[in-house]
Nucleic acid binder design. Structure first.
Length: 627
DNA sequence: ACATAGGTTGCTAGG
DNA sequence: ACCTAGCAACCTATG
């Protein structure tokens, strides 16, 4: 009898790190004869998930740093990057390389689980043993869900109670001090290039996409991809990714906090300008480099929210990142709703595009995205987001509230799309969860607490230094007006050398011109709060029949709602919303947007929260009326 | 059943 | 600089 020593493929995915990796430890505990550290480029992420150059650069940084760290431990090894979908690649590797084990860190999102099942089934068929561990979160999200009665964790109390039942958070595992040699890596099989026709990133590519041109890259050495290979222009972010850098930053922050006596105090006053040198770096450190357990000491509360979102995602599955079919998110008839993939009736997953039910709301959305809303604090944040791929999480609160329930009344899925594209620290579970939180569709519901684009920033930055940095048009404006330039006197504007005009969308950054504010914030705030109140009274959720079959519209109309999908803005009545050429006829019907006060929908079966997951009385009502 | 307290991180006016 | 009450009134957790 011959004893076969383990030959292990370690499959790196989002866990681009060596420290505190239970899965990597499990792989090394096998005492393998050979270990292949590999990364596979998955077309799902390349073509179906929007990402900016900054995001790609950050991920490539993480991969390159990991590869360097592996090579330091064993000069024969590195991160071998293979350009093919894992679902088609692994069955061929199992035959060609003859591994005994495949090891990886589990994910909680629906796509990854589906993909991993395909790969795991292929492994089983090929006689390869699969070992997985959790490792991205404080507790195993699936365990948390189990201890929470199989239900998603929709509050911090639930998460803490469930986490307590799961047990102690394990101590961080040190990085390994050796790695076995990689085995032979014959590529004696056909390379399947991408089959997809969809490419959500096409508009952002400036070069020809060569991502899948060859299985081992242009030099045939399985090196980390470059932005050029991916077809993206150079990144603008000053933030670099990678475990080595992130750990060094963590060490510095902890040392600083000790010196300043902040060690036990979770929160300093937010500073929107500081980034990599303060506690806010935690979010992008978490993305793929620094294990959460190492951050626990001084970022404890933030991490609990993250675990809450991951466990919610683990329980809810694919509808977690959307409204439709999601029993746990409130239905609110926001503008610019997602288009759903008609062909894919099984999951009803969002297809990435949206309906322009209101040209006005669409313009507000495009101005928000471009950082030309005419609200300087909003614009500063959105411009920093685009350039750096990072903004302070309180800044994220403000711009998210402004786009959804506290200004534009645009669907939170639009905002989540933009953050997904631009944030280098983007994680789907946290992104969707936070957008649901801020828009009061799940996790949080106090919609009358509404962030002001003027007052919120002033609390910490009276002089508007943050605005001056990112909105240079207003650099010399008196601090009295910097948050609300529409109030500035002509002489103050003249002194600052700025004119307030246009919508900021067409000109290519004309110097000395800053756009007119999109709307009167107080007015929009009141309209939105009133609309939220009526939507809460109607009480629909993402899986209610009335939402799926469109009957919701009649319910909202009966309640006298006008601030909703499809019911406004089909004329160009808004006085700020003209295209600049026909300003004179802009004031007709200017009162059209005002909500009639009065009847609210409260009488319509206020579905209690506990009925959200079942068929409520509303559903019977709807079915009856539908025939 | 019902009441009460609490909830990452709201804003404003007033002391 | 820092606190409080009032605003209008959401949901969850607990006893």
């Amino acid at each position: 009898m011959t004893i076969v020593k383990p030959r292990v493929i370690y499959w790196f995915r989002t866990d681009l790190r060596l420290h505190d990796s239970p899965a990597l430890k499990a792989a090394l505990d096998l005492e393998p004869e050979v270990l292949w550290p590999i990364f596979t480029w998955d077309p799902h992420y390349v073509y179906h998930v929007k990402a900016s150059s900054n995001r790609w650069q950050y991920i490539l940084d993480c991969q390159q740093d990991l590869s360097d760290s592996i090579q330091k431990l064993n000069p024969k090894s590195k991160l071998f990057v293979i350009r093919e979908a894992p679902q088609t690649l692994f069955p061929k590797l199992f035959t060609a390389w003859k591994p005994t084990h495949l090891v990886f860190e589990r994910d909680t999102d629906a796509y990854a689980r589906e993909r991993d099942k395909v790969v795991t089934d292929a492994a089983t068929k090929a006689g390869v043993k699969v070992i997985t561990r959790y490792g991205r979160t404080l507790w195993d999200s699936d365990e948390v869900v189990r201890k929470n009665g199989g239900k998603p964790t929709m509050s911090i109390t639930q998460l803490q109670a469930a986490g307590h039942k799961v047990g102690e958070i394990p101590k961080p595992i040190p990085a390994p001090d050796y790695l076995p040699d990689p085995g032979e890596m014959p590529i004696n099989f056909d390379h399947i290039q991408r089959a997809e026709t969809v490419d959500l990133n096409a508009p952002h590519r400036s070069l020809v996409d060569k991502t899948y041109k060859s299985i081992a890259g242009p030099k045939g050495d399985s090196a980390v991809e470059t932005l050029e290979e991916l077809g993206f222009p150079a990144a603008t972010t000053p933030h670099r990714g990678g475990e080595t850098l992130a750990l060094a930053q963590l060490e510095k922050v902890m040392a600083d906090e000790k010196v300043r006596g902040y060690f036990s105090k979770a929160q300093d006053k937010p500073s929107f300008n500081r980034t990599s040198d303060d506690s806010s770096f935690a979010s992008h450190a978490l993305r793929c480099s620094v294990p959460s357990t190492l951050l626990l000491a001084n970022h404890g509360s933030q991490l609990l929210f993250r675990d809450m979102y991951f466990a919610a995602q683990a329980a809810i599955g694919s509808p977690y990142t959307q409204t439709l079919n999601n029993p746990y998110v409130r239905f609110i008839p926001w503008h610019l709703p997602s288009k759903y993939d008609e062909a894919d009736t099984g999951t009803m997953a969002i297809s990435g595009s949206y309906q322009v039910d209101s040209p006005q709301a669409d313009k507000w959305f495009r101005r928000w995205k471009a950082g030309v809303t005419g609200f300087p604090f909003v614009d500063a944040l959105m411009r920093q987001l685009r350039f750096e791929g990072w903004i302070h999480h309180l800044g994220r609160h403000l711009v998210a509230c402004f786009l959804t329930r506290g200004g534009c009344y645009v669907h939170w899925e639009r905002g989540a799309d933009v953050f997904e594209e631009l944030l280098i620290d983007h994680e789907p579970a946290s992104n969707a969860g936070n957008w649901q939180w801020l828009s009061c569709t799940a996790f949080f519901s106090q919609y009358y607490r509404c962030y002001s684009p003027v007052a919120f920033g002033q609390k910490w930055d009276k002089n508007g230094d943050f605005i001056r940095k990112w909105v240079p048009e207003l650099k010399h404006l008196d601090a009295k007006y910097i948050y609300e330039p529409w109030k500035a006197t002509q002489s103050a504007l003249d002194d600052a050398g700025v004119r307030i005009e246009g919508d900021g969308l067409d000109e290519g950054g004309t110097e000395g011109i800053y756009p007119v504010a999109m709307f009167d914030f107080q007015e929009r705030r009141n309209i939105c709060i009133a609309a939220m109140k009526r939507a809460f009274a109607i009480g629909l959720h993402g899986n209610d029949e009335a939402v799926k079959n469109g009957y919701w519209k009649q319910l909202f109309e009966k309640a006298g709602e006008t601030e909703m999908e499809g019911l406004d803005g089909m004329d160009s009545s808004d006085d700020n919303d003209d295209e600049g050429e026909h300003a004179d006829d802009a004031d007709h019907e200017s009162h059209r947007n005002h909500n009639p006060k009065g009847r609210n929908g409260g009488k319509h079966s206020r579905s209690k929260s506990s009925t959200a997951v079942q068929e409520g009385p509303m559903d019977r009502h709807v079915k009856k009326l539908k025939t």
